[in-house]
Design a protein around this nucleic acid. Structure first.
Lengths: 178, 178
DNA sequence: AAATTTATGTCAGCCATATTGACATATTTT
DNA sequence: AAAATATGTCAATATGGCTGACATAAATTT
C-alpha cells in the first residue's frame, strides 16, 4: 500500500491541464469507480473458480444457464458476445466435468438446450453468494431509492438496441425506467 | 436477435425453483446489469484501440497514467492488480510506440515516473470521449440525485480496505459518502 | 422432393493477456 | 557494509479470445 508519488496532490485542475482534456472530473470519477467496482466484484467468484480449474468464462456460462434453464447456444453467444469457438471450449469443459448438460430441443431438434446439473447448480450458488453479499452490503449502507437509482443508471449504460433484450433477461426485477 | 427459447417466460419464481437458490431477483438483476453495463462500457474504447494494435491492458495504462502523470510503476501495479511481467509488456509497447515516456524519480532515483507523450494524451482523449458520452447520456435521462446515488453505490462495491486508496485517486469528485 | 438456410459442433492455428519463479541492477535504507 | 526496495527481464505456461474452413442434422423455402 506504499504511499504514492502522485505529483497531483490536489488533483482535478492539475490533471486536466496535464492531460489537456475537457474531461469533467465527476464523470471521470464514475468511469474509474466502475472499473474498481467491477474489478472487485468479479474477484470473489474468481477465487472460488480456481478450486475447480475454471475461469471467468465458465462462470458466465454457469450463471446465465443457471438463471435461464433451457437456454440454447445461440442465445448464450448473443449474451456473452463471444464466438462459437470460444464458447465451445468452455461448454465442453463444463459438460465433461458434469456441471452442465444438453437436451435436444423439442420444438426444434437442432437446438441444444442447456441446463445445470445438480453439481452445476450448487456451484452456481457458491459463485453468486459473495456477489449477492457484496451488493447487499453496498446497498445496505444506502437507502432504497439509491438502490433503485443504481439499477436505472446501470441500465442506461447498456447499448440502446440491446436494452429490451436485457430487460427480457432480467425479468420484472429490472422494471423499465419511468 | 432471433427470438429466444427461454422456457421461463414468467421468470423469477420458475428460475429460483429451477436453480434451487435463494437469490433475490432484484439483486440478481443488479449483478446482470453490472455485467451488461461493463460489457458495453468497454466496447467503445476496444474498437478504437484496434486501430492502434492495442488492447484493454494498454487502455488501462493510458488512462491511469493520463490521469495521474508522474505515477510510478508500483502504484500502477497496485491499481491494475496484475503482475510486473504483465505490465512490463504493455508498458514496453506503449513506450516503444511513443505514447508513454519514463523519467527517473528525483526523490528516489530507482523509480520510473510515467507520463503520456502528446500522442499518448491525444489517444487518452479519444478513448475517454465515448465513455464520457455514454455516462452523460445515461445520466442525462436521469436526475442529479440519481447520478450521486450511482457514485455512492459503485463506491460501496469496492473492497473496504481499498476504498481510501480509490478515494485518493479519484479526488474530490468522489466525495466520501456521508 | 430438392434446395437452401439454420443451429450446432469441430479442426487447426493465431494472438493478447495473464501467470510464476528466477535472477540482475541500481539505489536507498538500516 | 548489509539489507531492502524499485524496476526490469528471461523462460515457460495457461486462459480465453479470435478467424476461417468445414461437417452434420434438421427446419424452412421454393
Amino acid at each position: 500500500m506504499a504511499d504514492i508519488n502522485l505529483d497531483t496532490a490536489g488533483k482535478p485542475a492539475t490533471d486536466r491541464l496535464a492531460a489537456g482534456h475537457d474531461a469533467p472530473d465527476e464523470i471521470v470519477a464514475l468511469i474509474e469507480l466502475l472499473f474498481f467496482a467491477y474489478r472487485d466484484f468479479v474477484s470473489d467468484p474468481d477465487h472460488i473458480l480456481d478450486n475447480y480449474g475454471f475461469g471467468r468464462a465458465h462462470h458466465r456460462v454457469i450463471h446465465f444457464v443457471g438463471r435461464n434453464p433451457g437456454m440454447h447456444v445461440a442465445e448464450l453467444l448473443d449474451i456473452l458476445r463471444i464466438t462459437k469457438q470460444s464458447l465451445s471450449r468452455v461448454l465442453r469443459d463444463l459438460i465433461d466435468k458434469g456441471f452442465v448438460y444438453q437436451r435436444e430441443g423439442s420444438r426444434d431438434r437442432r437446438q441444444r438446450l442447456l441446463y445445470l446439473t445438480p453439481e452445476g447448480s450448487e456451484l452456481h450458488g457458491r459463485l453468486i453468494t459473495p456477489q449477492i453479499a457484496r451488493i447487499r452490503s453496498a446497498l445496505g449502507d444506502i437507502d432504497t431509492q439509491t438502490s433503485e437509482a443504481f439499477r436505472e443508471a446501470l441500465f442506461a449504460m447498456i447499448d440502446q438496441d440491446d436494452r429490451h433484450h436485457v430487460l427480457s433477461l432480467i425479468g420484472d426485477a429490472g422494471k423499465p425506467p419511468a
